[in-house]
Design a binder for these strands. Structure first.
Lengths: 190, 190, 190, 190
DNA sequence: GATGAATGAGATTTCATTCAT
DNA sequence: TATGAATGAAATCTCATTCAT
C-alpha cells in the first residue's frame, strides 16, 4: 500500500464498507468499489496489490479501530462496574454507529480472503478485554469462570442487539439500552 | 421414466453448506457445488432455476430446520426453567452440530441473494420463541421487558459461544455449557 | 424418421413452424418444440435423429407443399393469362395462409441447418414454374427475357406483399390483390 | 488514457455481418464475433451490454445505412423516371454490394433479438420512399394506387433479384439489370 | 415407444487485473 | 499517478442429446 494519497485509501475503504453492508462480501467487485469511491478501477491497484490485499487491509483497519474506540475514555482507576459499563456502551455505540464495519468483519470471518496471519493479528487485539475481565474477577464482582466464556457472552449479547436494531426487530432507546446492560451484568455478576 | 430425485436436492444442499462453511458464500460456484454433490453442473439447474434460487431455498430450509430442532422434545407442561433450558440446549446443540448451516445463514443475511420475501418468511418462524418467553414472563420467572430484547440476548449469547467454540477460542465441556446457561439465566431471571 | 405415429410428426412440425414464426430460427430449442408439441423431449428423437434432421425434413415438407398447392386446379388448356393468374393467386393464398411456413423457409435459407442436398432438391421443385413461364413466352404474351429473371420478379412481388400484409403495413382486400396482380402482369407482359 | 475506439464498433459489426451471412443468425456466438473481429470476448462487452444490444445496434445501423445510400446523388429536380431509376439502381447496387447487411436484416426480422422499439424506428426510415412514390403519382407517371403496395412491389422485386443473383440462380449483367428495371417500371407506370 | 431427468460441451457474461495513454 | 479500455480466465447458464425407467 503506497502512501501517495491517504484520502483515496479512505475513499476506497468507505466505498467497500458501504457496498459490503448493502450487498455482502460475495456481491462486490473491484469495479463496484472504484465506482462507489469515485475513482478509476486502475487507480485502486495503485493503492492495493489486489482485491485480497484490499480486503485484508480493511479488515485490519476495522479491527484496530473497534478496539481503539472501545477503550476510549477508560480510566483504570474508575470503579469496575462503572468502567465496564463505560466500555460496554463504547462497544455498543461503536457497533451501532459503524454497523457497516461490523457487517464487514463478520462477513470476512468465513471468507477465503482473510489470511491466517490477518486473523491472528486480530486475535491479539483482544488482550485488553481479557485484562479487563480478569480485573473484575479479582475484585470478586463477576463470576470466576473462564474469561473467554465471559467475553463471548458479552460480545454475543451486544452483537445480536446491534443486528436486531439495524434490522428493525428492535427500536433502541436509553431505557432498552440500560435493560440490555442489566441483562448482561446480571448474568456476569458474582 | 426417471423421476425427479429428492435425494439430489439434499445432496446439493449439503454440498453447498459444506463449501460455504469452508470457503464462504463469496467463494462458491455452481461448478463447485455440483462437483461436491457428485452430479453434473447442468443437473443443478434441473432442480433450481439459478444460483439465487438455490441459495434462497437452502436458506429457507436451514431456517425451518433450526426452529423445528429447537422445539424437539418440548412439552408445554414442563416447568418453565426446565423447558427453557431444554430448548436452550437444543439450540446450542443444533448450532454446534450444524455449524455449517449457521455460518450459511449468517453469511446470507447481508448477501444480495436473499430476497425480502425469503427474509420475511424466516422472521415469521420466530413466533414460537416469542410465545415461550411470554410464558416465562407470565409466570414471573424472567424479567418483564421487551421480549425481542430478551430473545436477542439469548440468541446472541449462544451464537457467539458456538462461534468461539468452532474457532478454537473455547473448548466446550459439560461444565462450561452449564456456566454459559447460568450466565444467560441469571441475566434473564426476574 | 420412423413411421410409428404420423400425428406426432405433424405435431412436431407445427410446433416448430409456430415457434420459428414467433421467435426465429435462432430462438428455438428442442425443448421449446417438444413442449409446444405437447410431447416429451426424448420423444422428438424417436422421430428425428436430431435437430438438423428435423429442420431439413420440415424444410423439404414445406417446399413440397408450397409447390403442390401452387398448381392446384391448374389446367394446361386454360388460356395463359387465366392460368397464370390462377397460379399467382394460389401462391399468394398459400403464403398468406401458411405464413409460418414461408418465414421458416426464408429463415432456413441462410442457416447452417439446411444441407446442400436439401437445397438442391428444393431447387428442382421449381421446374413447373419455369415451364409455365416458357409457355407464356411461346404464346408471346410475356417478355422474352431470362425466365429466371421473370420468376424472380414474380416471387419477389408476392413475397414482399405477404410480408407487408402480415406486419400490418398493408391491409389486403380483393381490390388490392387485383392491383398487385396488375402491377406484376403489366411488368411481365410483352 | 485509452479511449473507446469507434473503429472497434465497426470491426465488431463487420465481423457479425460476415458471420451471419455465412452461418445465419442462429449460428453465431459472441466468441465467434470477437474472434473474427480480432479482439477479446470481454471487449465486446465494453461496447455492447450483451448480444441483444449488439444485434439491435447493428440492425439499426444497417437500416440507416441502406436508406442513406439509396438516396445518394438524388436531386429532386431530376425528371421523375430518371430519379426513380437512379434510386432503384442505388438500392440494387447497395443490396448487391452489401449482401451481408441484407441477409442480416432479413434474418433479424423474425428473431427474438429485435425489440419493437428498434423495429418501429426502422419503419420510420421508410418515409422518403413514400414521398418519392407520391411525387410520381402527382406527376401521373405511375399508377395511383396504395403507395405501400407500390413500394412493396418494388422492394420485393429487387430483393428477390439480389437473392437469386447471390445464390447463382441468375448471373446479372447490365442488360439483365435493365430488363429487371423495365419489368418493374412497366408494372408501375400509369 | 414415451418420458423427462441427467449430462456436459459450449454459449453468454462477469470481473480481477493489466496496460496504453 | 490516474484513467478506463482491453483482456481472458472463470463463472453462470443453456441446450442438444442420451439414458434409465
Amino acid at each position: 500500500m503506497k502512501l501517495k494519497d491517504d484520502k483515496k485509501v479512505i475513499q476506497i475503504f468507505q466505498a467497500a464498507l458501504k457496498l459490503v453492508a448493502k450487498k455482502g462480501l460475495s456481491g462486490i467487485t473491484m469495479g463496484d468499489i472504484s465506482r462507489e469511491a469515485g475513482i478509476a478501477t486502475g487507480t485502486v491497484y495503485v493503492y492495493f496489490k489486489g482485491k485480497d490485499e484490499l480486503i485484508n487491509a480493511l479488515f485490519a483497519a476495522c479491527r484496530e479501530n473497534s478496539v481503539k474506540v472501545s477503550f476510549k475514555g477508560y480510566q483504570p482507576q474508575m470503579p469496575f462496574k462503572l468502567a465496564f459499563k463505560h466500555i460496554w456502551l463504547n462497544i455498543l455505540r461503536y457497533k451501532l454507529q459503524n454497523f457497516e464495519e461490523c457487517v464487514f468483519l463478520e462477513q470476512c470471518y468465513h471468507s477465503p480472503f482473510i489470511t491466517t496471519e490477518t486473523r491472528e493479528k486480530a486475535l491479539q487485539l483482544s488482550a485488553p478485554f481479557y485484562e479487563l475481565m480478569m480485573r473484575g474477577q479479582q475484585e470478586q464482582l463477576i463470576k470466576s469462570t473462564d474469561v473467554g466464556l465471559l467475553l463471548t457472552f458479552i460480545i454475543g449479547t451486544i452483537n445480536e442487539l446491534v443486528k436486531q436494531t439495524h434490522y428493525g426487530g428492535i427500536t433502541l432507546n436509553r431505557s432498552k439500552i440500560n435493560t440490555s446492560f442489566d441483562l448482561c451484568w446480571d448474568g456476569l455478576k458474582a
